[in-house]
Simulated scan of single mutants.
Amino acid sequence: MSSNTRVALVTGANKGIGFAIVRDLCRQFSGDVVLTARDVARGQAAVKQLQAEGLSPRFHQLDIIDLQSIRALCDFLRKEYGGLDVLVNNAAIAFQLEDPTLFRIQAELTMKTNFLGTRDVCTELLPLIKPQGRIVNFSSSMSVRVLHDCSPKLQQKFKSETITEQELVGLMNKFVEDTKNGIHRREGWCDLIYGVTKIRVTLLSKIYARKLGEQRGGDKILLNACCPAWVRTGMAGPKAPKSPE
Rank of each mutant, 00 (worst) to 15 (best):
M1I: 09
S2K: 11
R6G: 07
R6I: 08
R6W: 07
T11P: 06
G12N: 05
I17M: 11
V22H: 08
D24P: 00
D24Q: 14
Q28N: 14
Q28I: 09
G31Y: 04
V34D: 07
A37G: 06
R38I: 08
V40D: 14
R42I: 01
Q44I: 09
Q49H: 08
Q49I: 12
Q49G: 04
P57N: 13
P57I: 11
D66A: 05
R71T: 14
L73V: 12
C74V: 15
F76C: 09
K79Y: 10
L84N: 05
V86F: 14
L87T: 07
A91C: 04
A92E: 04
A94T: 08
E98Y: 04
E98L: 08
D99H: 14
D99I: 02
A107D: 02
K112T: 12
T113C: 14
L116N: 03
L116S: 11
V121I: 13
T123S: 11
G133E: 07
R134F: 07
I135T: 13
V136Y: 03
N137E: 07
M142H: 06
R145E: 10
R145C: 01
D149P: 00
S151C: 04
K153V: 14
L154Y: 05
Q156S: 13
K157I: 01
K157A: 06
K157V: 06
S160D: 14
E161K: 11
T162M: 00
G170K: 06
G170Q: 08
L171I: 13
F175V: 10
F175D: 09
E177Y: 01
G188K: 05
W189H: 03
K198G: 01
T202D: 12
T202L: 07
L204W: 05
I207D: 04
A209R: 14
E214V: 09
E214G: 01
G218E: 14
L223C: 06
L223I: 15
N224F: 03
C226G: 03
W230A: 10
M235Y: 03
A240H: 02
